[in-house]
Every structure is written in C-alpha cells, then in structure tokens.
Design a protein around this nucleic acid. Sequence first.
RNA 1: CGGGACGUGGCGCAGUUUGGCAGCGCGCAGCGUUCGGGACGCUGAGGUCGCCGGUUCAAAUCCGGCCGUCCCGACCA
Length: 576
Amino acid sequence: MRWSHAFIPTLREDPADAEAVSHRLLVRAGYIRQLAAGSYSMLPLGQRVRRKIAEIVRQEMDAIGGQQFHLPALHPGEIWKRSGRWDVMGEELFRFEDRRGVDHCLGMTHEEVFALLATELPSYRDLPQIWYQIQTKFRDEPRPKSGVLRTREFTMKDSYTLDLDWEGLDAGFEKHRRAYEIIFRRCGLDAIDVEASSGAMGGSESVEFMVRSPSGEDWVVSCAACGYRANLERAAARLEPVPDPEGSPDPEEFPTPGIRTIAALAAAHPEEAEPRRQIKTLVYLVDEQPTLVLLRGDHELLEQKLVDATGATQLRPATAEEIRQLLGADPGSLGAVGVTGLPVLADRALQGRRGLVTGANRDDYHLRHVDVGRDLAVETWTDLRTVAAGEACAVCGEPLERWRGIEVGHIFKLGTRYSEVMGALVQDDDGRSHPIVMGSYGIGIERTMAAVVESFHDERGIVWPMGVAPFSVVVTVLRADESGPLEAAEQLYGDLLTAGVEALLDDRPERPGVKFADAELIGIPLRVTVGPKGLERGRVELTARRDLTSEEVPLDQATKVVAELVAAELTAARPE
RNA sequence: CGGGACGUGGCGCAGUUUGGCAGCGCGCAGCGUUCGGGACGCUGAGGUCGCCGGUUCAAAUCCGGCCGUCCCGACCA
C-alpha cells in the first residue's frame, strides 16, 4: 500500500474520554473509529490486524481438525426459548419482532444453532466433530467501555466439540487449550489459563485465558510457587484456623444500642466480637426466593459464587423493607439463629465455629455464644467469600497474588444441556441413543487486538508483534519530491512485495519528523528509511520499532535482510 | 438501573456565571521558502452551537422536555 493513497487518519492529540491505553492508541493511530456506544468501525489498518488475528485463529482451529461454518447472526426467538436462554439471558440479548410479530434475536453465541445442526449426526461413528466459525456476535452490554475491549457488536471465533462421552469431551477440551496457547503466542500475547466460573453458559468446568493488564476487567488470583491460578470468581484460599472458646453455653442476647456494622460491634466489644468471631448475615433474593447468606465477619461475599452455588439466574440483595418483613429487624442486627423456612447458605469458613457473635433479629441486640453446628440450620455449605491478595494458596500455602486480566478466551465443558433440548442424539454401538456431549470455546478477535496493544506500546505509540502487525515493514522515503529517493524506494517496495513481505510505502511529501512519528505511532515492526544521504553511499537505514535501534544496510541487500527478519520473528512466535 | 460530567467547523477546546457580530489551536486547500525527528510565511475554505419547544427586541448563553456520549457503581459468558 502507498501511504499517499491510504486512509490512515492519525491524530496529533489524544481523543477525549479514552480511558484504556489501547483505546487511545487505536483511535489516535487511525485503526478504529467509534460509531455509537460499544460500536466501532474498523478502518483499513484495524481491519488488517483483525484479519491477521482471525487468520491465525483459523489456521490453528483447522490444525486441530476444526471445520469452518458461517451461521446466521439473526436467530428465530424459538430456538432460544427451546434452550431456556430466551428467559435466562435477560436484557443482554438483542430482541425484536419481525413484520409478522414473530420474536427474533441477534445471536450472542451459537450453542443452539450448532446443536440444531448436530441433530443430523445419526451415529457415534460420526463423532468426534469440531465445528467453528468466525462471526459477528451481538450483546446488549449494560455498559460498553474501554473502546474495543467491551463492545455490543464484535467478532468471535466460537467453536464446539461434539463427542459421544465425557472422555471425548476432555480430549476436545485439551485440544482447544493447546490450540489457544499457540494462537495467543502467535499473537505475541502471554495469555494465562485460569480456572473460571461458567456463568450462564452452564456446564461443568471452564477455563479462561487472561492477559495481564491494568485495563482488564477481571481479577485473577495466582500462586507463583505452585502455579495455582483462578478467576477471583472461583478462587479459593487456605485460612488460618481461628481459636474458639471451649465449652458452649446457650446463645445469650445482649444489648448493642445503635450498633449497625461489624466494625462498630468489634469496637464496642473487642474481647468477644472481633470481626473474625462474628457471623455476617446477608439476605439475598435468589430467583425471588429470600435466602440467608452467612459469612465470617471479616469476609466479603463474592456474588458470582452465590450464583454458581444456587444456579440462580437472577440475584439481588433484599431491600431494607423486605428484610424487616422477613426477619423483624433492620440490617445491622440480623442473624440466622432460630430462623426457619428460609434457605440458609453458609461459607465454609464458618464450619464448626463456636462462641460466635451475630445479630439477634431484634434491633439493637446481638447474640453471643453461638455454636454454628448447634444453633444454625445451615442447608448448604459452600465457598462464598472473596479471596484477598496475600492469603495463603489453598494448594501450597504460599501467599497469593491478585491481578487484573483481560479475558481473551474462554473454554467450557458444556455437557448435554443443549444437545438434549435440541434433540441432538447419536446411537452407540449397542443401538442406544445418547445426547451428544458438547464443549464450547470462544475467542474475542477485537478484544485480542486491544490486549496486544495493551501489552505492547510505548510513549510513541503501538509496537505490534510481527504476527499481527498490519504491515511488516514501512519504507519511509525522505525527500519524496526528488526522483532519486522515490525511485529507489519504489524499487525496494516492489522487491519486498515480490518477496512476500507486507510492506507500506510512505511516499507522502511530508517532512521526516512527521513520517517517523506516524510510523512509530501506528507501530509497524520494521522501518526502512530511504533518503538522499544514505543513497549516496548506496545504503538505507533499517530500524526496529521495538527498541528503535538502527543499522545501515546496502540497498541491494535490504529486501533479503528484511524478509529474513520477518520470517525469523514469525517463527520465534510459533511454538514447535 | 443509581450517581457524576459533557455535547460549539474533521480533531482538541474556550465562550454559557452576567443574553448583544461564533472564536482559538491543530488539521485541511492554494502559493512560496524549508525538509534525516512532529518547520515557517502569506492567502483561503469550513459551524443548523445535539434535537424540540418556551422566555426575550435579541438565545451557544436563561427555562422545560428529549436524544446522545463518557466516567464511577450495579450488572455481565
């Protein structure tokens, strides 16, 4: 491409309101433009990067035996009603009626459609299958943000494994895990696989691929010593046992006038009510069912864990009025002792504890001497608390680290949920029908692009890894108004294209400073500077964007040197 | 959904408090000089001031409604 005829609208100033670095740089360097909230146009440079990432993904999906499809983004509402997700997905699903009043939606993912196609597989002999597509997804995000990191319309590679049994699913899942490692490595990314929550997808197990970045919206907990790593939504940690008093007198009410918080109670009764000796009682409406949720006083609830534990589709804290109606007291004096008729979930950190303090369900009173096993009717013991940085790793006991990550990929073991409702059955060798065991696997293409920029930039702009760069090299002509440099550069540019190198020719009649600054802003890995001074000695200058180091190269060697550098970088990014 | 802010040439902003010719920087066009690290001079083009309504002799500015965008929170595969 000749820059003088290209649409590369770079900006001298930062766009307004661009919080994430990747957003700021992708706009400034002329890769993307916003159309509406969560809706972005890919300009030619952006489209080239998007295409490169998609192509890497396509190659690696083909490498594990994937077959590419292209499914509609427009779905009849009926198939989502059949899977139950028409109701589960809530407002995030774009819905509308067609002219006949029939419900439709825009696909946010494609389990239903692929499961429907899988009904055409009659026999276990047809399995396993890996099906995928690279296609536009729509999600009516309540709050799109950070440019292309979280949008309402985006490209996703979604793939699906179809197997006879769980062993087959495990194999397909591991194939995907390895393919994802290769894909992200080829994009230059250090993406860490972490244990994750499956959320509304359902299924038994899921793993997210996280790129460390302050712009990330997820928290990851990891252990440097043993390698344990999990999304905070799933993370567990080892707790120091709390020594409780011997013996167990009956619970006893005592006055706590005006005390509404754990901290205030601890301050008023330091000897018996330090936070870890209190029971925190929360009231949630779990799919409209009022539920008591108990945690140690110094612990925080992680709502996703409550969702996972209950299978809820809707969750919200009860209002003060609802709580008063249920328990007869205001928040601040709540407890579960003697409560019947409501489900009680408790965090495992409370298991076996004695001599604790909790609210009495009577304003301005609390209870002491509470013995969890004796006095509380806990229905479900589970992990509900938020792990804090520095807590001991549940596996090895070393301190845990907590960091922000961008979720660039997510792989799920789905099981038979979708195949059952869609009727995707196969016969085994005994002639019995089985629902196909499915897995589902996603990569966000534009989000991956943004994650690369988050990982590779400096004060001058983007620094693309070779594998995803829009061009491998920019040939920068100085004094493009003179025939000598321009002709030499055009010759070199032609040779590079012939050698299969993706080159951009900066033939604009700009001053050198402008050209260098623009090339650095848009982040092309290599630059060849062709100017009158070097040409007098038959030389050009080769500059690496990464560290801005330069070397002189004879003009007639330049094509070969560049081609070798490009090939070497691509090879280095590809695991053996 | 709750809280906050913003909306004025392509981009970034001032002007709104106190109503009175719509401005600045960058970018853009033409000419000239300059040009291996974001040059300069001269000339010029470009704006329904988000939309609708109201007040007023007069509205970017005051009032009401709506729309849009961003940030924080909630929510989220």
